[in-house]
Design a binder for these strands. Sequence first.
DNA 1: AGCCCGGCTTTAT
DNA 2: AATAAAGCCGGGC
Length: 122
Amino acid sequence: MQQHTDALILQVVAAVPAGRVASYGQIARLAGLGRAARRVAAALRRANSQPPPPWHRVLRSDGRLGLPVGSAGWHEQIQRLRSEGVAVIDGRVDLRQYLWSGGDGDQSDRDDLDSLLWRLQE
DNA sequence: AGCCCGGCTTTAT
DNA sequence: AATAAAGCCGGGC
């Protein structure tokens, strides 16, 4: 049941390229879940898939992390992002610069996104 | 059915 | 720019 949607969510998250980030809401839409942003969060929290999904590339719509400030996960997420070259300043990421295919950066990601959506379409 | 609770989002102060 | 209040969508009880 939820298994299916969870898997779907994880696939979309897995499609976010390293060095880029996406918002919960964005993932939800791409997965065809409408505004179920919180559902995405739930899926990530419970995610126990074998190669763990790049959960750290998912942020809130304002560029701040979803996890409680100062928590272990919060620190870990920042560390992971930085190791991918994403600047985290004061617990925040500049979405205008790192958001995945949201604005108008390089469109090189676009192809990946489209092909992914087609594959998920069935 | 009804209520509460989330790694959220948007809108209004 | 920061905070508060209302939405939204599923899940668990």
